[in-house]
Write a protein that binds this DNA or RNA. Structure first.
Lengths: 219, 219
DNA sequence: TTCCGCTTTTTGTGATCACAAATTACGCTG
DNA sequence: CAGCGTAATTTGTGATCACAAAAAGCGGAA
């Protein structure tokens, strides 16, 4: 779990700071599927009262980043194969569209920014840093889609990421095997060429590869 | 605003009953874009304390069915043209997929159920009942997509509906003009024939028509 | 009338508490 | 040692309150 201090500078409402701390922790894949949380545990760890902790949890449950049983227990979701198939279908439908729009509104710094993130990803993989790898992989996609200036579409995609994030750690172990096509490189080339359809295809292939890796890891 | 009593029978948690009452009110298009709500107003109307009202609002803000300003004011969102274009793009990408899956898992009663809803819609339009019309239109789509048994995809679509719902009332006035293609009939025919692609095309056309009507109404 | 400044009211936030239900711990019985 | 029933503990829920900030109301000056 990540320190609350990272967000304390900006004088945000307490519930917002708790929300961001929890969300980032989930997005990093740092919490295992099925793991249980408690309101008092969250509140104590972040030195706040139960009220903002409850609001942050309620918000994450609404985004399906957390799950609540009928009795009120707070769990990290553990989506089964059917659910994962749905989530990757959503990514396959939405992300290529965002990629196309990003090319349309492309600005100069985007390519170098994404290239730098991709380099950091490869370093994380070689150095054995799963959290860093997952975080940079998310950033790679997010930076691209932010250029599309479509916040409503991006919000839908981010909600899907939150739901798949806890399972991503299992994929990490399968990455070093070597015979994986690098669709990030293909995406960077397409972006440099300003080829929207090639970029959309690379993104779709990248999503499909993630789905396949997860499908293998689940068995 | 709708009575809380409609959900009081099932002994759900208070915050859940408040959430459903608010959500259904929004989904019916009964709240105008830009309209302000207060926690105490919601709590008093439903005879509960501020705490569950706050949790319900927080959840709806997370689903983007409500908006909160930096100072904490609760507003019904009033999406501009660009935002609406995004939301209808999301519907165009997601709903045809759900329609295809519904055909795959088609059960006998679905067609007659949708036909009945469609009849009720036409009655609402002739009778001048905008809330009933909007509610039945939502049901028409929801019943179809529920047959797809893809809850994660459906949740994404429902989030989009919540965001467009407040604007739908403006569309209603344009409906009586007569020269509108009835894609619901086309959808029913495709479903009866078990033609997944024809159904997906009808749904896409229906979504596109809604987008166009809203675009005209906005000027 | 219009605009500015002050006062009053309204509003969201965060903390605390009592309570009931669920979970866990534990000791007894077989 | 396993199964089970009871006690102790943990946990989410809903209500209430103090507080600070924002909004609304209001009166006077230009």
């Amino acid at each position: 779990m990540q320190a609350l201090d990272e967000y304390s500078a900006a004088d945000l409402p307490t519930h917002e700071r708790v929300y961001r701390a929890l969300r980032d922790t989930i997005l990093d894949g740092a919490l295992a599927p099925g793991e249980a949380l408690t309101l008092r545990g969250i509140a104590d760890r972040l030195s706040v009262s139960m009220t903002p902790a409850r609001e942050a949890v309620r918000r994450l449950v609404a985004e399906r980043a957390l799950e609540m049983t009928a009795s009120g227990r707070i769990l990290i979701p553990s989506p089964g194969p059917e659910r994962l198939e749905e989530l990757f279908t959503a990514r396959r439908l939405l992300e290529p569209e965002l990629a196309r729009r990003a090319v349309r509104d492309n600005n100069k710094g985007l390519h170098s920014q994404m290239a730098a993130i991709n380099t950091a990803m490869n370093r994380d993989m070689e150095g054995g840093d799963p959290v860093g790898y997952i975080r940079n992989n998310t950033s790679f996609h997010r930076v691209l889609y932010q250029a599309a200036e479509a916040p409503a579409l991006l919000a839908l995609v981010e909600s899907v990421w939150l739901q798949t994030a806890p399972m991503m750690r299992r994929v990490y172990g399968r990455l070093g095997t070597g015979d994986l096509a690098d669709y990030h490189e293909a995406a960077l080339d397409a972006l440099a060429a300003g080829d929207a359809e090639a970029l959309a295809a690379a993104i779709e292939a990248d999503v499909a590869q993630g789905r396949d890796l997860l499908r293998q890891a689940h068995t």
